[in-house]
């Protein structure tokens, strides 16, 4: 996106975000900017605080300190200072959240079309034909055959469920997508297909995304920038290939050297 150079306001500005669980640190003093069209990867081992950070950013958890400033359609606003109605409205329109387990992000008892249509109806769509047409279009975009529109996700494979979850999230044209291990639990070949799909969507829609994963191969292919977390702290951040190829922090060096070579 060439508009990236022209825009001067970050889509998301995170300042000193801290979340404690009692005396234990969830994440501590995390600050970063995310620019429109950028994909940020957050890596770290289990318990490094990456999921806590994502939950705080997406409004699922309330951090103890810090600010999360999102460039809303009416200008930059501190998401944490918003009332719940406004924040939920934001998460239905401008934000999307792709869960690791599609069952957490889908309504398993509702047809594929209903799952995709829900966000449209949530923002006021009231024309069945239009909703269905849009759902059909989106199923196509995530490579699900149109004739599966009236099937329930329980009849889908894991990869299809994950693609359906992505369609359901992107149908309202969000500007920021949070992804929690989006390719976790999928076969390697299915992962590749999903990565390709995500890359295309990010490019076509000019999406910004924050992807939490422990899979360094995934971030290398998807993320422009990388943040490495350990013990709730960001120990290193930078260009994805730079962090992976020339890691500066001891932990990052360990992480990178621990990856099995294929």
């Amino acid at each position: 996106m060439s508009r990236m150079e022209t825009l001067t306001t970050p889509l998301l500005q995170v300042e000193h975000l801290t979340k404690r669980y009692g005396t234990r640190i969830g994440c501590a003093d995390v600050s970063f900017d995310l620019w429109p069209g950028e994909v940020l990867g957050i890596v770290g081992e289990s318990g490094s605080g990456k999921s806590t950070l994502l939950s705080c950013l997406a409004g699922h958890l309330t951090p103890d300190q810090g600010r999360v400033i999102f460039d809303t359609r009416d200008g930059p606003r501190d998401v944490l200072a918003m009332g719940e109605p406004e924040r939920r409205r934001l998460s239905r329109s401008d934000w999307a959240f792709v869960h690791q387990n599609p069952r957490d992000g889908l309504r398993m008892g509702v047809t594929a079309g209903g799952n995709v249509g829900e966000r449209l109806m949530a923002v006021g769509a009231r024309h069945y034909g239009d909703i269905r047409a849009k759902a059909t279009d989106w199923l196509g975009r995530v490579e699900i055959a149109a004739e599966r529109i009236d099937d329930r996700p329980s009849a889908f494979s894991g990869g299809m469920q994950q693609r359906l979850q992505i369609a359901r999230n992107l149908v309202t044209g969000p500007r920021l997508v949070f992804m929690d291990e989006p390719t976790g639990g999928l076969d390697v070949s299915v992962q590749a297909r999903l990565l390709d799909l995500l890359r295309g969507l990010v490019r076509e829609m000019g999406l910004s995304a924050i992807i939490v994963t422990h899979d360094l191969a995934v971030v290398r292919l998807l993320a422009d920038r990388l943040m490495v977390m350990k013990g709730g702290h960001v120990v290193e951040s930078g260009l994805t290939d730079q962090v992976l190829d020339d890691p500066q922090h001891a932990y990052t060096q360990l992480l990178v050297s621990s990856v099995l070579q294929v």
Binding site: G113, A122, V123, R126
Partner: peptide, 8 residues
């Protein structure tokens, strides 16, 4: 929105 999902 969910109520309309049921009707959908």
């Amino acid at each position: 929105g969910l109520m309309h999902v049921k009707l959908y």
